[in-house]
Nucleic acid binder design. Structure first.
Lengths: 337, 337
DNA sequence: CTGTTAGCGCATTCAA
DNA sequence: TTGAATGCGCTAACAG
């Protein structure tokens, strides 16, 4: 049985009757004779030796930690991302430090400054809002950062983004094929990165398919949450009669389903509903929810790999990836046979 | 604007024309003259000085990190716990290191050993399965551990647990009051801590209310997941005709709702359904799901606070808390008016 | 192949 | 109040 007391290289070295350097070498896979290896391992085992993280970090500069910052740990998209990131990062031998920053850029700037304390080797950041200050802070960071989400074109930072415009195009195309013409949008706050992208994508798609829209067909929820979605949908139904609703995420879409049911509208017979992000919530919803998969899992995976590569090679050229969207068609847009 | 290069105490000291000790004192709030304070702060600001985490940790022994280990980052209960823990831990000045261990105790034992590397000041652990080896490893840990979940009575470790038996009692009482008599159980694996607790609670409640049960009324899903829940419910409906189903968590309950709908059964008219954990999924479900709130948020909060106290006072007496359950009644057990 | 030693950056003890 | 010096535990450069 391993000892419970704290040990260190010197103790192991003393017990094995060798130098600390030899112990370090044996334990880290350097060259050592068989006899040396045997004795060191035995001593280490007997003392329950475990190397100290902070000492090693201080010496090597590597923390073996990666930081992940998202707005809300509870949001299904971020949950999906976290699940992916946890796995990738863990396999690569890193621990994951998670912070929930909220949507205020100031908090993210604080985070960046605390990052400079060197508790992690890099940061995965998915900011809801991007300001000039935040960009400046990211540029000034000593450590590599990979941004998950859209960035202004002139910002030279690794990033992986979704293609909302194409994604919403897929949704609208699908709805048009089902003879829907009055397609509404339930969006989240438009001063957020995803909110702005969804709105632009919606307007582009509506135009491309020769549909008409109007302010009555567009509502903005106060957040990307269920509650906000209920209120926004109620407002929408009070001011227009859409035959389809595209929602900026699955939570808003589930809220729309609920609100429609409460209003006595049938889905999809009267109104079709499309969500976005294709999270677990889409499959669990009743009726199950057609959802635009903006590739959140793929984005997270790509971003994590990008960050790990960048940590290993700080001078690699900046990479910007775009993940292609796809549509998962379910009951909320399909008439039952 | 802060510098982007890495700085340290010596550089700040040189710039301020004082000793490193003085810089350290000023920055950590020791005694220093006004003039000294001014000069040091100015120099630190000018150099964009940020203290190095690993050096401080090596010196002080504190990492300001707390580890959280759960079986599955994607499970709604753990999401709820994570959200709570993130907030508590962050406010107390700790970073949160998250690991997803799966349900295999061996992984948790690995985790405990890596914990001894000293990358965190303490661990919040919510094990799905508890073995003698795991308990031994927990006992042997150099760092404080708080277990979220039930522990054998003779294990002297801080822990915060739910009271499944009482919780299920609340559910069954409620169902009996609605004239349900053939109450089924859709459980998760019974070799897990929660699975075993749910089964025991169900059997006790059934007996207490003078109901009968049988093996046909009890099914075990292969995991606490939606898919497993669908299969288990299908099996249940194939072998018996319950008028109510108690499920071991909300995911299983949503699966039951779906499977019942697919089978043409009305909820709650034909069959009432009760979930467990009262996660977001309960409110989002259609019909919305009555759920036993086993206090996962409260448990997480209490556990985090317990751990922080224990870190500050390692010799405090062991605490074991039990969080009282409550029932959130929604549509899945209430006939509409 | 093995041992000696410097030094990563910091907080803290001890003197002044 | 301030400064000089020590050592936390480790890796790596260097010497033997």
């Amino acid at each position: 049985m391993a000892e419970t007391k704290k040990s260190n290289l010197a103790l192991v070295a003393a017990r094995a009757g060798v130098s600390v350097a030899s112990v370090s070498r044996v334990l880290n896979g350097g060259g050592a004779s068989e006899e040396m290896t045997r004795r060191v391992r035995e001593a280490a085992e007997a003392l329950g030796y475990v190397p100290d993280t902070s000492a090693r970090t201080l010496r090597t500069g590597r923390t073996d930690q990666i930081a992940l910052a998202v707005a809300d740990v509870g949001n299904p998209v971020y949950v999906q991302m976290m699940r992916t990131v946890t796995s990738i990062v863990g396999k690569a031998g890193y621990r994951l430090v998670v912070s929930s920053t909220g949507s205020d850029p100031a908090d993210q700037i604080d985070l960046l400054s605390s990052l400079n304390r060197g508790y992690a080797d890099g940061l995965l950041l998915s900011p809801l809002r991007i300001t000039a200050d935040l960009i400046a802070a990211m540029r000034g960071s000593r450590l590599p950062i990979v941004v998950i989400g859209t960035l202004p074109a002139d910002v030279e930072l690794d990033n992986v983004r979704a293609d909302s415009a194409t994604g919403i195009g897929l949704a609208v195309e699908h709805l048009v094929a089902q003879d829907r013409r009055r397609i509404a949008l339930v969006n989240g706050p438009v001063d957020t990165v995803p909110g702005a992208a969804r709105l632009a994508g919606y307007l582009a798609a509506v135009e491309r398919f020769g549909l008409t829209t109007s302010s009555e067909l567009q509502v903005t929820a106060t957040g990307f949450t269920y509650r906000a979605g209920r209120r926004a949908t109620a407002q929408l139904l009070g001011q227009s009669s859409p035959d389809a609703i595209v929602c900026a995420n699955d939570l808003l879409a589930v809220a729309a389903l609920k609100e429609l049911a409460a209003a006595g509208a049938r889905v999809p017979a009267d109104v079709a509903v499309v969500g976005m992000d294709d999270t677990d919530a889409a499959e669990l919803a009743t009726p199950s929810l057609t959802s635009v998969d903006l590739g959140s899992a793929k984005r997270a995976k790509a971003a994590a790999k990008l960050l790990i590569r960048r940590i290993q090679d700080p001078d690699a050229p900046v990479q910007r990836l775009v993940i292609a969207p796809s549509l998962s068609v379910r009951e909320s847009t399909q008439e039952a046979a």
